[in-house]
């Protein structure tokens, strides 16, 4: 049964690796729902967070293939329940609508959003949350005419107390040394 999974991969920060990873999905005709890549806590190591809707059996095999890539340090997958995750969304609305009534201000309060910038013409609102939450705010704001809307890919963190990347890198080093 298909469900949402969060695939995380720690990789070397090398040119073309994004392509190598996405090829694995393309080849199997699997769509990527969202993708975030950025440097991790350790310099030179990137963290990929990829959201897919798949059966667990398929996601497991895809993760095996990702981990097989020479420049991938470690890959794993989790269900949504197993991780704490957020996405960020930006909304641009006409400032005129903001000043006309207090309704937009109310929405900002209700949704725990915040205003990033106000100009004569437009106001930029930011909200972090799950996709459903940022979507609801979009629909609420859209009654006043959202001029622009953008949502990021997901970022996610495990429920384990610390990110064990540096420990992992040390273990990896020992593992490679121990291979006879």
């Amino acid at each position: 049964m298909a469900q949402e999974f969060i695939i995380s991969a720690y990789t070397e920060n090398h040119i073309g690796l994004l392509n190598r990873i996405t090829i694995i999905f393309t080849r199997r005709k699997v769509n990527i729902e969202s993708l975030t890549v950025s440097e991790s806590a350790i310099k030179g190591v990137s963290k990929f967070t990829i959201v897919v809707k798949l059966s667990e059996e398929k996601v497991k095999k895809i993760v095996q293939q990702i981990e097989k890539l020479v420049e991938v340090l470690k890959a794993f997958y989790h269900t949504n329940d197993e991780m704490i995750y957020q996405e960020v969304a930006l909304y641009k609305v006409p400032t005129e609508e903001l000043t006309k009534s207090n309704q937009i201000e109310k929405l900002v309060r209700q949704h725990s959003a915040r205003i990033l910038e106000i100009t004569k013409d437009y106001t930029v609102i930011e909200k972090t949350g799950h996709k459903e939450e940022t979507q609801v705010l979009f629909e609420d704001l859209n009654q006043f005419g959202v001029l622009q809307f953008i949502r990021s890919g997901r970022i996610a963190i495990t429920r384990s107390p610390i990110e064990k990347l540096s420990v992992f890198l040390k273990q990896r080093d020992a593992e490679l040394e121990s291979l006879d």
Partner: peptide
């Protein structure tokens, strides 16, 4: 002889 992101074999 070694690339840290690449584990060629396993014990």
């Amino acid at each position: 002889t070694k690339v840290r992101s690449y584990v060629p074999s396993h014990n």
